[in-house]
């Protein structure tokens, strides 16, 4: 091989790869509006993104899997913990992470910025990104959830418990979050009515409670989940 042939290898390699890349970039620009629901990209969502950058959230958390790996991924955070869950953690991290061995800084985010960030996360949750991350996929139950459902039987209450994000904080049989207490034997301590009351208004039952009130559950869902939990003895 001569130096001239080597030069042509360089030129052709670079040009062919660039052509593929730029053509795909042009097409991506065309398709991204649909995939990311750009029509829902309101001013508040954009303001939320600015706040998200202002506080450098992305140097602890990942979003769409990018950033630092110190704290949970935020792609589906809205689906996982909901509006109240997000607000509680941003506004009062000291309390929210009192039991955690890893802390989140209190960045004194204003109420308006928090509300904007929630809108931002609400929009991000809907991005069509080939169903990543796997742990938040709605299409496939994670194996931990499958094991849980198999071991307790598929009651409507178990389904509510599993699909409404209770396990982000609470655990059953060692699967789930460590944020709140494990609920393996909660039925020994609390009755159906007591659980219903607690889930609706934690502070009303126990002023020191840290759990956010679950306003999004319907009465029927609340009844089923309480029945399910009280059966755990």
């Amino acid at each position: 091989m001569t130096k001239k042939i080597a030069f042509w290898i360089f030129l052709l390699g670079t040009i062919s790869s660039s052509v593929v890349f730029l053509a795909a970039t042009w097409d991506t620009q065309r398709q991204v509006a649909v995939l990311s629901n750009a029509d829902k990209l309101s001013d508040r969502v954009v303001a939320g993104k600015r706040a998200f950058q202002k506080y450098n959230c992305n140097d602890c958390h990942t979003i769409l899997g990018f950033g630092a790996y110190y704290a949970p991924d935020l792609t589906r955070v809205f689906q996982r913990i909901g509006e109240e869950g997000i607000r509680f953690r941003i506004k009062d991290p000291e309390k929210a992470f009192a039991n955690s061995w890893r802390k989140m800084p209190d960045l004194r985010v204003t109420d308006a910025e928090t509300a904007d960030m929630i809108e931002f996360f609400r929009w991000v949750t809907e991005i069509n990104n080939n169903d990543w991350p796997p742990q938040d996929s709605r299409k496939r139950l994670s194996r931990g959830e499958q094991a849980m459902v198999a071991s307790v039987g598929v009651t409507p209450g178990a389904a509510v418990f599993q699909s409404k994000g209770c396990m982000n904080c609470h655990s059953l049989h060692g699967t789930g979050g460590t944020f709140g207490p494990a609920l393996d034997t909660v039925g020994r301590r609390l009755s159906v009515e007591r659980i219903e009351h607690y889930v609706r208004d934690p502070k009303g039952v126990d002023p020191g409670a840290m759990m956010p009130p679950q306003k999004e559950l319907t009465d029927r869902e609340l009844e089923e989940v309480a029945k399910f939990l009280s059966s755990l003895k």
């Binding site: 704290a71 949970p72 991924d73 955690s100 890893r102 991350p133 796997p134 742990q135 139950l141 994670s142 194996r143 931990g144 959830e145 396990m167 982000n168 655990s171 699967t175 789930g176 979050g177 460590t178 944020f179």
Partner: peptide, 12 residues
């Protein structure tokens, strides 16, 4: 965290 679907801090 990803395959078993256990919580972030459990994995940590």
């Amino acid at each position: 965290e990803r395959a078993m679907g256990m919580g972030f801090m459990t994995a940590q």
